[in-house]
Simulated scan of single mutants.
Amino acid sequence: MDALSIGTLAQTAGVNVETIRFYQRRGLLAEPAKPYGGIRRYGEAHVTRVRFVKSAQRLGFSLAEVAQLLQLNDGVQCQEASVLAEHKLVEVRDKMTDLARIETALSSLLEACQAQQDAVSCPLIAALQGGGRGAKT
């Protein structure tokens, strides 16, 4: 399987070629040597690594955090990986709290908009124009 072109690697890993090149520039994926007059060939390890990066990104890890996880990828440093995951979980929960506040504010503004009958001023637009003073965030 060490005979994949970059296009085949991308297709097999479920990304596009530019993603592969981007990961190489960021140091997340090694670029194989290019034989004289030939093309670079990738193997199963490259496919696995790209899939690892994409899986970590889907969980919300930044590329910098993914790089840290890749350094711990040997499986014996579970404690360090756990610490990274705990930090990410705190971030996710904070974002969820923020999103709940935004939902409440938007819901209130939408209710105010819908309650307005033949009003000249829209409560949502007024709140946004006022820097959000009308929205409880």
Rank of each mutant, 00 (worst) to 15 (best):
M1E: 09
M1P: 05
M1H: 02
M1L: 15
D2H: 05
D2S: 13
D2Q: 14
I6V: 14
I6A: 01
G7K: 01
G7Q: 08
T8F: 00
T8C: 03
L9T: 11
Q11I: 00
G14E: 03
V15T: 12
V15E: 01
N16Q: 10
E18Y: 09
E18T: 06
T19A: 11
T19M: 02
R21E: 12
R21W: 04
Y23S: 00
R26G: 07
G27C: 02
L28V: 13
L29Y: 01
A33H: 06
A33N: 07
A33R: 11
A33I: 14
P35Q: 04
Y36C: 06
I39C: 14
I39G: 08
R40N: 04
R41V: 13
R41H: 14
Y42C: 06
G43C: 03
G43F: 01
H46D: 08
V50I: 05
F52C: 03
F52N: 02
K54C: 10
A56W: 06
Q57W: 08
Q57Y: 06
R58E: 12
L59K: 09
L59A: 06
S62L: 09
S62K: 02
A64P: 08
V66P: 03
L69S: 03
Q71I: 14
Q71Y: 00
L72K: 11
L72F: 08
N73I: 11
D74P: 04
G75W: 00
V76Q: 11
Q77H: 07
C78F: 15
C78T: 15
E80G: 03
E80A: 15
A81N: 04
V83K: 14
L89P: 07
L89R: 05
E91G: 05
E91I: 15
R93Q: 12
M96S: 13
M96A: 15
M96D: 10
D98W: 08
L99G: 15
A100K: 13
A100H: 08
R101H: 12
I102D: 09
E103Q: 12
T104I: 06
L106I: 12
L110V: 15
A112K: 12
C113M: 01
Q114F: 00
Q117P: 06
A119L: 07
V120K: 14
V120R: 08
V120T: 15
C122F: 05
C122S: 10
L124Q: 10
A126R: 03
A127N: 00
L128V: 13
L128G: 08
Q129K: 09
G132H: 00
G134I: 02
A135V: 10
A135P: 09
A135G: 05
